[in-house]
Design a protein around this nucleic acid. Sequence first.
DNA 1: TTCGTATATCCCTTGACACGTATATGCTGT
DNA 2: ACAGCATATACGTGTCAAGGGATATACGAA
Lengths: 124, 124
Amino acid sequence: MESVFEIIAEPNRRAILSLLVSSQQSVGEIERQLRMPQPTVSKHLRVLRDAGFVESTVDAQRRLYRLKPEPLQEVDAWLAPFRRFWSAHVDALERHLDRMGHDRMGHTKEVQSTPAKRQTRRRR
Amino acid sequence: MESVFEIIAEPNRRAILSLLVSSQQSVGEIERQLRMPQPTVSKHLRVLRDAGFVESTVDAQRRLYRLKPEPLQEVDAWLAPFRRFWSAHVDALERHLDRMGHDRMGHTKEVQSTPAKRQTRRRR
DNA sequence: TTCGTATATCCCTTGACACGTATATGCTGT
DNA sequence: ACAGCATATACGTGTCAAGGGATATACGAA
């Protein structure tokens, strides 16, 4: 399985995580609320636990699963650079602002990391 | 392919996205920087474009790919509830605070959505 | 101990998808 | 028109994970 991203690629697993965000749940409760067969729930929980998304405690014969923050924080961290990107990029709005001469700081518009690779004409 | 999450489950695709966050790039530039075969790059870009993660414009015989914000914003949106979760959950720190009698508001600790399901003894 | 409930694991099949390699398409300059 | 580069697509293959169903394990109540 490996990466955090592969884990949350599975819709049922995302559903389970969303369920657990409000409070801890037993396998049976998850099974009923999500209407999925119990082995499926258990298997996904196994994956989630191995990846550190959840932890479980034993309560009689049930297991109570609750969320652990770290892996999703990792996703959040990966997302950070992009957030910067799109907040500097309110897109149409940005163009408006630019036309009003707002000139914030260094904008992405014409910044080329490989500046003069252009060989022939620029087309359009 | 379907969901945004499956798209970013692929490491190479995440690499491409991360590369594009700084500035737009041609296929060849991506190919070189990420050291992956050109067909691979093209195929992943195809997927990313179909899913709305990137868009391309033609520049002579190259295609310049650039990021589009929406799909990743969707991921960000999905993450939101969890952010609330873990900021209410500084965990060990929280316990410290609780011991100091901080009693913020309704904490997750003993909040059961199914309150009195407990059948026998609590074990431990 | 025997039964019932809760959960985990096993086996098997099926379907995606990523990759490599080869090839097609498209554009450019000569 | 031709050669060369940049990019896209097609095909065949291997891997891996999800799902269904049956079964195993663990615990509790009687």
